[in-house]
Write a protein that binds this DNA or RNA. Structure first.
Lengths: 118, 118
DNA sequence: CTAACATATGAACAGTTGTTCATATGAATG
DNA sequence: CATTCATATGAACAACTGTTCATATGTTAG
């Protein structure tokens, strides 16, 4: 850590968001960073679903799904509505779609690049 | 898990991507799901930077940064170029910007909604 | 070739995360 | 109002993650 880079540092420091905001941001992405949760969100692209349907779809415990749905709900990525005994979960806004779509786009470009290399 | 939802299940099953793709997708988001890595990426929005500059910027060990840069490199989110002893890291494509921008947009809308509630 | 600098890497450790199991809540039905 | 179904929750445990410390690699200057 000897050579000088004060110029760049100062420029970057000005535009870097606050620690709090960056922490919130990574917390948001943390939520997408789990296969189970990605599957749930993707499933909800189609239509709202009840907990047991999701559990059946993913071949997982009702408890496991319920825990994950709580996390998604806390982050305002999904909403829920009750109909009798059943509780239906649904996507709460379209950012989820856009974020996941962007992720896919990056993946696909990566795949294409790696194909070209051969 | 008693009531019937075969109709929805079948519909959703058709459009659900493969486990492998969804796993790659969540692996990608996992990378954004860490404050240090988000900060690094954000810093690289401005300009390429060497490892020690990033370390100084974030007030972290050179080693810690180096470990994280490896993860970002492995995921093709950043590239590097050597100039003498120094190695400069830079964003490898614009998806990073878009993904992070979308994340921010979701956060901001959340903040606005919570303000309205009061 | 050696010293100094910039970065990379591996092992170790603490902290976090996702699942399971057991159990609790809450609504409808007879 | 007791039972059944749908979901939620808490504790516990294994697996994973990020940082630190020590050390290795690789480059340049003298």
């Amino acid at each position: 850590m000897e050579h000088n880079h004060d110029a760049i540092l100062e420029k970057v420091r000005q535009d870097l968001p606050t620690d709090e905001l960056l922490s919130d941001l990574s917390d948001l992405f943390k939520i997408f960073g789990d296969t189970t949760r990605c599957k749930i969100l993707y499933a909800l692209f189609e239509s709202e679903m009840c907990v047991c349907a999701i559990a059946e779809l993913l071949g997982m415990t009702q408890s496991a799904i319920s825990h994950q749905l709580r996390i998604l709900k806390d982050a305002d990525l999904v909403g829920k509505r009750r109909d009798g005994k059943t509780i239906y979960y649904f996507l709460s806004d379209d950012h989820v779609r856009t974020i996941i779509a962007q992720g896919f786009e990056h993946l696909i470009e990566d795949y294409l690049e790696k194909e070209q290399e051969t």
